[in-house]
Computed example of a mutant assay.
Amino acid sequence: MTAVRTVLGDIPAEELGVCDAHDHLFLRSPLLPGQELDDREAAAAELRAFRAQGGRAVVQWTPRGMGRRRAELPGLARETGVRLIAATGLHQAAHYAPGALERHTEGLAGKFVADLTTGPVRAGLVKVAGGFHGLDAHARYVMAAAAEAHHATGSPIAVHLELGTGALSVLDLLCGQLGVPPERVVLGHLGRSPDLRAQLRAARAGAFLAFDGPSRAHHATDWRLLDSLAALAEAGFAERILLGGDTTTAGARSAGGGPGMPHLLSALRPLLAEELGEEFAAQVFTGNPARAFAADWRG
């Protein structure tokens, strides 16, 4: 059955609604000491603020071993009325404490499949990560396991691109060598490297392109975003675009002084409607996520 797998069960894709296609409710990494997202009430407040702006769904990309707190997600979804999609997968090796990575990588594909198909809280995607302009051995191993899990379940695969780079290497491995259909791949952080040629090539290949992390001054995000989106739309690829917040620290949440999830709808969506049209805005926030995160689930 073609459906979006949420933490409260599978739903028809057309019921997903206005979606933040890449964010984090909970997150922990040794690369972000003291900046953990581990406050349930703060997560609930952010979801309520997002819903107040018209948001109906959030895709949490936090993978295994990074404090994803899957057991908390169904309660948050019920309390806030926001549909939540959880992730399995693994991030770059640097995001795991010494000794922890080995425990996660053993039998990795089987762990991904189990997260996607068993238990009271099932994941709805596999999160993997590339490196800066390339793929190391860890990335290739994790992506091979993700591809195996996709072939077993139908799951989408969401990819962290380091500073927005390496999209074509990822597609060559996942799609060219491992047989994952490109429309099952979501490439994250495209806006962090304003390389329009690479963005167009990834779109032509058939992948979904996620532009996320708005208002990060040290990335080419907001100030280049409209140029990229306009060029992609003009080239006929509006149906491949996704938008997300990618909130990774408490200070980036709306209650902490950052833009947070509500910024996508309170500031960015009106701008997109004004510059590129209401039809475009509706497509990237509602129609495209419904296609990107739906799957013909097996298991």
Rank of each mutant, 00 (worst) to 15 (best):
A3V: 00
V4F: 04
V4Y: 05
T6S: 07
P12H: 00
E15P: 03
L16R: 01
A21Y: 10
H22D: 10
L25T: 07
L31A: 09
Q35W: 08
D38F: 01
D38T: 07
D39T: 02
E41Y: 07
R48E: 12
F50E: 03
Q53W: 07
G55N: 08
V59W: 05
V59I: 14
V59S: 11
W61E: 14
G65M: 08
R68N: 13
R69P: 02
R70D: 10
G81S: 09
R83W: 02
L84N: 04
A87T: 11
H95F: 13
Y96F: 09
Y96I: 08
L101M: 09
L101R: 13
V113T: 11
D115H: 10
G119C: 03
A129G: 12
F132A: 04
H138T: 01
H138V: 03
Y141E: 15
H150I: 06
G154H: 06
V159S: 13
L163V: 06
G166F: 13
L168E: 13
S169K: 14
L174F: 04
C175E: 00
Q177T: 05
V185F: 11
L187Q: 11
G191Y: 07
P194A: 11
A198D: 14
A205R: 15
G206C: 11
F211E: 06
A217S: 10
T221K: 04
T221F: 03
R224C: 15
A233N: 06
G236L: 09
E239M: 04
L242W: 05
T248I: 13
S254Q: 13
G256I: 06
H263S: 12
L264C: 12
L271Q: 15
E278P: 05
E279T: 08
F280D: 06
A281L: 06
Q283H: 01
A292I: 00
A295M: 01
R298P: 07
